[in-house]
Design a binder for these strands. Structure first.
Lengths: 199, 199, 199, 199
DNA sequence: CATGAATGAGTTTTCATTCAT
DNA sequence: AATGAATGAAAACTCATTCAT
């Protein structure tokens, strides 16, 4: 039962661990978690099956690694967007936020879906996402307050806005409904959210 | 390999097929699709493992059956809500809609999550949901138009409203964010959507 | 985690379970527990690997089954020997006991060794053997007492006798020492034990 | 595939080889041979996994090394006991022998069990033990003869005594039978063996 | 129609041993 | 000599699906 997971310090090892995660990322996104097996991950990563277990406890651990990559890819730009906000000009903030989120979703849609799936079967994954949303909501809210926005109901507003923006990102990325004009929809949503904050 | 799936005509058989679907529903919702095996479904349904393949092509086919149940449970009340609308009084329509959706989610949240998960791995599931959304959007839009609401951008408004309502239903059902006052959030969302339609 | 082990009631199934145990018995005895794999057991039993897990929780469970067979084979004749004792004539009892034990060992030596091995790695196996020894000691002691033998120190005498008899059985079965005349040794031991009880 | 096992001459190397053996000893004794892996041995020994194969052909080779340690620890004191015998006073010799063996067992019981186990799967281990027993029996017998004890049947007597003493050592060390008074048992055995030699 | 035992390919995981550095 | 990352064969176990009864 001795759990001996290498925490790689050398460059080559770090690269290898990263390669395994990237391979997992790619395959999980393409075929879903349960339809991917470790042998395949190893093959795509160009390593032996054994070494996978040198870097990860098990398959789920690879998923967790991939999730962190996903979070890095998707949330980092969004957090950096936050830093750029310097006034309460929601007519600028909202479209910019939608833009960021849609773009982040577009490049990582498949992984997003896989991870969202796993939320239903894995507590940890679900918890990680919940805490991320919390972090974003709080950071955004504090930012607005620091710029003079009234504190009252700000968490609820921000969280609602985030939900709405995520919805529209989904719509645009999956583009399943031919009867919807996504440009129109985005305009609607933008106005709606601007009003939410400016009321 | 002749695919001989019984389309049961006798009452006893119909009941049996239904029992299998219900068992699948329960288990898929509780533990997810991949963590449920057919033997378990058969056991919960009180039938033999073999007969499951008399009524269904494969495991996925049971999921599809369960999905129809889910749709029946969740969408039927929402469709019937539609019929009750007789004026363009959005201050009444929106809260009622939110109420219906939240309630439907509350009783079927687990299955919703499972099905949503599977969308990423199963085209059919994804397509079924898309077409349902389409149907709902169209029905609702036509209803509004028939009551005199302007046709322009109505699909986009309705679809956006549906997205937002789903989001808030999720929030309330999973209740993961202790920093959110869900009553406040619901009020915000209601006002926001009323304005969307009344502008 | 649903542990569904068939407890076979039908004759065919019982036979199959028995066949698996016998295959395990044979292979464990020939090659040791750790050098035998389940696929091999299945093959020798003439069944699929899967069904093995229909009848047994895991590989160790097969060993436990084999252990019970071993116990049946080895201890049953010894217990029946007990029933045959009708007087305190140790000059007859001791040689007869030695005879039985040596013969039982000779036909099951390999399995004995394997099981004894496992005692060091498996608590259950060890405990089962200890309780068997206890049962035998107690039964034998009660028998002697019922025939009028003094109760004092009888457990210790019987247990000692059992140990000694086991030792000599080992010696005869494995026959590793060319400088030993096993016939002489058996005579020595017999006399020694007769005196132990007759003193 | 050139088998280049270092026969270490330098002190540092000898120490390292010794450390590996001691680590193997400890782990084999604690968890059994098959439940111990080489990486663990290396770790406990404070060396790299690779270098283990610089000093040993394979895992089994480490076991053989550990066995020699065991033999050194257990048999050396017993052999030295032999040297101390200067008369045929069995009332002294027997208790002293029992004492030595019990004590040796008490400190090395776990390894004893492991090695005994391996006898069934490893010819070399079995042979080594057989030859040790032979050596002891012969040495002891010669000693007795040199002190005037009749040569006839002496090997068988000594070997039997050794067996009995080992049995009682086992009993005392593992102490599995609550219904046995081990002090009584030791007295019985002592008397029995004294008589065996004095008859 | 119904049963549930049986199949066997497929999956995760381990570990003795090798090898580049 | 020494390291410890890497290998990959082999093991235990699962489960959707089939089939004899």
């Amino acid at each position: 039962m001795a759990e001996n997971i290498r925490e790689p310090k050398q460059k080559r090892s770090i690269e290898k661990k990263e390669r395994i995660i990237e391979a997992g990322y790619k395959l999980f996104a393409e075929k879903g978690y349960f339809n991917t097996n470790t042998a395949e991950i190893a093959k795509v990563a160009g390593v032996s099956t054994g070494i996978v277990y040198g870097y990860f406890h098990d398959k789920r651990d690879i998923l967790l690694g991939a999730m962190e990559i996903y979070i890095r890819k998707v949330f980092t730009p969004i957090f950096s967007l936050l830093d750029g906000i310097s006034s309460l000009d929601f007519k600028k903030i909202i479209p910019s936020a939608i833009d960021h989120v849609v773009r982040a979703h577009k490049t990582n849609a498949a992984m997003h879906t896989t991870l969202h799936s796993l939320s239903s079967e894995d507590e940890i994954v679900a918890a990680r996402f919940a805490s991320l949303e919390e972090e974003m909501t709080k950071k955004m809210s504090e930012k607005l307050i620091s710029l003079g926005y009234p504190r009252e109901r700000v968490y609820e507003k921000v969280h609602t806005a985030m939900d709405v923006i995520q919805s529209i990102a989904h719509e645009e990325v999956y583009d399943k409904h031919s009867y919807i004009d996504y440009f129109v929809m985005r305009t609607l949503v933008t106005d709606m959210l601007v009003r939410l904050f400016e009321e």
